[in-house]
Write a protein that binds this DNA or RNA. Structure first.
Lengths: 109, 109
DNA sequence: TGTTCATATCGGTCATTGCCGATATATAAA
DNA sequence: TTTATATATCGGCAATGACCGATATGAACA
């Protein structure tokens, strides 16, 4: 009864998530995605679909390839999910996973 | 009224803490210190004084200098505190800081 | 004072990460 | 089928991080 049926975070996953969060830019990406309308207002598609990869590029002054890599790290850690629509990649926060991670920290750290 | 008068975590500090936690060994160190009696039973001094730097060395298979560096990173991030007594260095978890950090994550991540 | 013990710091090596431009892939449009 | 657009991956380079042995610091004790 401590953790209901929330997604469980394995030790290996916890380490991977912490690594993903060790770069300030990636943390920023996650935080921006909390309020998409404030940070990605120039997006043509509705923000409910997720944030288009290209949107990050404009906000952060990094190259396209670097942004793509950062997003990939976040995705592999499970903190965001990727949905491809046409030629675009839409990323979304994985709220369950993020919450589970913080809960894991609360319990173990 | 959101944060009472808890220690506040600045953005720069948050980044430094996340970096400190990006190495599994350092996370382990912190977790071991939650239950000192289980992990550092061979310590001569009472665990209430903190954990003697040398104790970590025995548990983790790293060299003395490497352990010292890891502890220094945790201390600079404010996650542990250092008290010198005689020739020994006693480290203790900074519970307020750890709690404030997790709270910060809950609010911003 | 010199010796011992605990820990911190230094110097160097090797592995990892961050970054970029260039290229590959894949969809969409002409 | 060619062209354009969006994103991922590759190759290489520079910066950072992890690790160690050796050395320095500093306290305790003979």
């Amino acid at each position: 009864m401590t953790d209901m049926n929330k997604t469980q975070i394995e030790p290996t996953e916890k380490a991977e998530i912490l690594k993903a969060l060790s770069h300030p830019k990636r943390v920023e990406f996650l935080e921006w995605m909390r309020e998409p309308e404030n940070h990605f207002c120039s997006q043509a598609h509705p923000v409910e679909m997720g944030i288009c990869a290209g949107q990050f590029e404009k906000c952060c002054g990094l190259s396209q390839s670097t942004v793509s890599q950062h997003l990939s790290v976040l995705e592999k850690a499970g903190l965001i999910t990727l949905k491809r629509v046409g030629q675009w990649s839409f990323y979304q926060r994985n709220e369950d996973r993020i919450a589970a991670f913080i809960e894991e920290l609360r319990n173990t750290l």
